[in-house]
Design a protein around this nucleic acid. Sequence first.
DNA 1: CAAATTAACGCAAACGATTGTTTAAATACA
DNA 2: TGTATTTAAACAATCGTTTGCGTTAATTTG
Lengths: 342, 342
Amino acid sequence: MEKKANIIDVAKYLGVATSTVSRALQNHPTISAKTKKLVLNAVRELNYSPNKIAANLRSGTGNSIGVIIPKINSNFMSNCIFGIENVIYPSGYNLIICQSTENYEKEVSNIRTLIDSQVSGILISVSNETASADHLAMVKSNNIPLIMFDRIEESLEVDCIVNDDVKATGDGVEHLIDQGYTKIALLNGPEHIYVYKNRYNGYRQALALNAMELKPDWVIQNINSQQDAYKATCLLLDSPHPPDAIFCAGDILALGVLEALKERNIKSPEEIGVVGYGNDIFGGLTTPTLTSIEQYPQEIGASAAQIMLQILEDKNVKTIPKTISIKPRLIIRESSSRKTRE
Amino acid sequence: MEKKANIIDVAKYLGVATSTVSRALQNHPTISAKTKKLVLNAVRELNYSPNKIAANLRSGTGNSIGVIIPKINSNFMSNCIFGIENVIYPSGYNLIICQSTENYEKEVSNIRTLIDSQVSGILISVSNETASADHLAMVKSNNIPLIMFDRIEESLEVDCIVNDDVKATGDGVEHLIDQGYTKIALLNGPEHIYVYKNRYNGYRQALALNAMELKPDWVIQNINSQQDAYKATCLLLDSPHPPDAIFCAGDILALGVLEALKERNIKSPEEIGVVGYGNDIFGGLTTPTLTSIEQYPQEIGASAAQIMLQILEDKNVKTIPKTISIKPRLIIRESSSRKTRE
DNA sequence: CAAATTAACGCAAACGATTGTTTAAATACA
DNA sequence: TGTATTTAAACAATCGTTTGCGTTAATTTG
């Protein structure tokens, strides 16, 4: 097993200085076309490729971008990563991916690792345990660009890419109203998370705008799983004033709702309307098919990555942090369509 | 914005040599407990953390592990990555993730990038365009450990983690036979891909073992999408000798089958049995619910990662490459259950 | 008590590139 | 022809660590 050739080998092979080789490879103007050609040939001959670690150390510029997400194995997140990778790849950066697994300690540890690894920038969607922003501030104080997407920490002034959850939820609720539902419940995630807070606000605003009652009993927060949603639905249905529609802040939650309805032989959309969130692939397969909200996760990831590349390009240009909002879209299916379209 | 402290700053602060600081941080035995304590304090004081780039360069040991997959936004792959990350994270390595997007050129480019970035090892699931193994051989010749999972290139002698697709498919087919189906068709992916080749073999063997006819017309290869599967099913049903069961080498394909059946008002499982592959989340939601094969992607990823860590630990120990087979499991649901259980 | 160990740390050379500064050769100009 | 300018490449410092080896002082040994 021979040692990999380094720049010195190439230089010796040609009888030139390493600086010449280095500059030739960077297409530096002070190197003549002739020597450039020679270098290129020698490089091929010796199967040389530059050691990026060494280059990074010397030049100070990193070669990779870090991404921290709660968990990668969700439809939403893996599509975000897909979008990010597509944009980052052509630029030559590597993607270093970390999972916080919804754990604050691990998220902090991830940040440290990425900083120590000299990443050029960090994209993050924070864990649901994350209350403090100290670790994120640390990123900024290390002069590393930071961008948040989807799950953001509002106390920090950085670029953000989010969905307009308020509007999307509002659209969903208005659609239910439009279909003649009048008693609309909300099954929401943990309220302290940015997106769920917004979905709650969207729900409230839509009701207010339509002069409709908001019964506190109909708002159930902190629902995290299909199981939770199933139970919550049962409670709602058994209450003295059951709702006639349920807006779910996640498609998985909607599955729990449908499960409870099926069990009790309650028809949807006839008796109860259901709207989910996320437009997961199974939405078209349930009975009834599920009205939901498409979030365009690939676009979210791609936008975040684009902003990052922009920042990395003109490093010194200090712009004010902006928030980009990707417009979600209501996908109407059976579970909420009580009126027949004409 | 102050410069980040480096090891020289720490050494000066304490009036010791950088070597002392370095060794103290590595808990080297020749450094006294007292100095170690002093160093630790100074490190905290100055908010120092070692520059891994520099450390890697000097020590030669890399700090990250590369992963190449076709696309990250599939249920199977994102769960593999999940498994990989869980195992890799505690070891201190970073995960660099690349997508080949099923493109051979890009896969080669990914390999180059990872080699240039001095990764300590590479995990790969090859693209379906990959015919040559030259780029993979390059990894070996650079003395970088290589492990393949799921989609493997058989011409190369490296550790592999796969499903026993032959057996799993056999189990699925035998289950159909067991349920009284006698004319079993196969909707398969591109035959040149390892997993699909095996699923085809499993299908053949099961039929042979049960002395059943294999009609070439019932084997349809190179089906890549729900759309493809839908069309293929229509052709099968319209043929002079239609099958009474269809084994699909993917759950998405099974969706296409169910679509075609529904359209023609053909009942499953009564008239036609259907088995999918992958146990995607929607399998429990279709009508009828879909019998499928659970592949345990997280375990596949985790195993691959474990082997990698083992190899990295005792670098010099040369072992013969082994193939680890994760046993898939048949999940029986409605679409294939013609007999009532007693 | 002199000699030999041992413990604890400092010195300085790597690792493999990049890049500011010089130098040497070639060309331009008067 | 002699000087100024441009061009092309060499020289050498540097990035922030790690690590082999040398050094000193303290400790043990016979």
